[in-house]
């Protein structure tokens, strides 16, 4: 009973916050609703017995991606009126995209329920006594090792690309010289003087 209650609670909140992500006027509120949606999706994952995926969803999406999102949106100065004025202009494109997506989902579900092409080649279901971290680990690091490494390489390339595109050497800034600062001792900065009366000091 509790499972059903929790499922409907999480599911309703996911749907509502998903809708509110699009509908809310303030972009910061949108991001916050998105975070709530992620969070409740993680709850659904826990209910489905995929606790590892649920935790990753919270750590990666809520803890890192959405923080950066929020960061950027908070700093941007967005003109809401201008943003809203384009809605009707792009409504047709949006509608077409939505129809295409719905059609794809229906086709995918239909194909899946009709029995796949090579169902026998799918991985055997995990035994229920194996924690799903172990199950994922075994699959990922044995059977799909090269694909996994390939995915890592793609991410590395993307990261290097982003750095190369945005990095610029500026000559007009004076960066901190940290080793110089650390190596500075008090005797380099201060001197004990004993000036005579009325003579002043030569620094």
């Amino acid at each position: 009973m509790i499972q059903a209650l929790a499922f409907y609670l999480f599911a309703i909140v996911v749907c509502l916050s998903g809708a509110l992500t699009i509908l809310s006027r303030n972009p910061v509120h949108s991001v916050l609703w998105l975070i709530l949606a992620f969070f409740n999706a993680a709850g659904l994952m826990v209910l489905a017995g995929a606790e590892f995926i649920a935790m990753l969803l919270v750590i990666v999406y809520v803890g890192a991606v959405a923080v950066l999102f929020l960061f950027v949106v908070m700093m941007l100065d967005i003109d809401f009126a201008e943003l809203r004025s384009g809605v009707m202009k792009y409504a047709a494109v949006g509608l077409a995209l939505a129809i295409a997506l719905v059609a794809e989902i229906i086709i995918a579900i239909g194909a899946w329920s009709a029995g796949g092409l090579e169902m026998s080649r799918r991985a055997a279901p995990i035994a229920s006594d194996v924690p799903n971290i172990e199950a994922i680990g075994r699959l990922l690091y044995t059977r799909y090792l090269f694909i996994f490494e390939g995915a890592g390489l793609v991410l590395l390339v993307a990261m290097i690309g982003a750095i190369v595109l945005t990095y610029r050497q500026r000559s007009d800034v004076r960066p901190q010289n940290v080793s110089h600062q650390i190596n500075r001792r008090s005797k380099d900065a201060t001197r004990n003087m004993n000036p005579g009366v009325g003579e002043g000091m030569q620094l």
Partner: peptide
């Protein structure tokens, strides 16, 4: 006593930043 205990700790501590960000904003 969950088997993803440490990940749970990491997930929850990564949520902590929201309180601060939201308060500031």
């Amino acid at each position: 006593n969950i088997n993803v205990g440490l990940l749970y700790v990491l997930a929850a501590s990564s949520l902590g930043v929201y309180g601060v960000i939201l308060a500031g904003w």
